[in-house]
Structure formats: structure tokens, C-alpha cells
């Protein structure tokens, strides 16, 4: 049986260090709605690989610094 992974992210922290970038600003930069950024930040939606790279690109960091994958204990 495949192991379960939980994806977490540092978008809130990265926004804070990017001059308190708003969710709307980030959404416009990556071409999605603010609701999608809210959903990603709160872990309700896992973005596509392309969107994940675009988000990382906005902050100028690697994708691993934005998203982390943890093995979930069952």
C-alpha cells in the first residue's frame, strides 16, 4: 500500500518576508484567484507542479523551500 504524504507549505511566512505581500498580489503574479492561494495556504488544495514552481519563482526560492512533504503515520 502506498505511503500517505501530507503536503505543507511556507507561503504565509514567505509572503511575510516578501514585504508582507498580499494573497491577491501573489495570486496575480502566478495567475490564479485569491481563493486558490487561500486554499493552498490552508492546505485545502495541492497545486499542480507548474503552479508550485511559479509560486517558488515569485519568492525566488526553490520549490522545496515553499512546499514540504511529510510522511503521515497511520
Amino acid at each position: 500500500m502506498p505511503k500517505k504524504f501530507e503536503i505543507s507549505n511556507n507561503i504565509r511566512r514567505l509572503r511575510f518576508f516578501a514585504n508582507e505581500m498580499t494573497q491577491q498580489d501573489l495570486a496575480e503574479k502566478v495567475g490564479v484567484s485569491r481563493q486558490t492561494i487561500i486554499a493552498i495556504e490552508s492546505g485545502k488544495y495541492s497545486p499542480s507542479l507548474e503552479l508550485a514552481f511559479r509560486i517558488a519563482d515569485v519568492f525566488g526560492v526553490g520549490i522545496g523551500e515553499v512546499f514540504q512533504c511529510e510522511l503521515k503515520s497511520e
Binding site: 495570486a27 490564479v32 484567484s33 486558490t36 486554499a39 488544495y45 499542480s48 503552479l51
Partner: peptide
């Protein structure tokens, strides 16, 4: 325009 964006989540 900002409010009516349709993206991959939609």
C-alpha cells in the same frame, strides 16, 4: 477581472 479569474483549482 481579478475576481472572475478561472484557474486550475476551478
Amino acid at each position: 477581472d481579478r475576481e472572475m479569474v478561472e484557474d486550475e483549482r476551478d
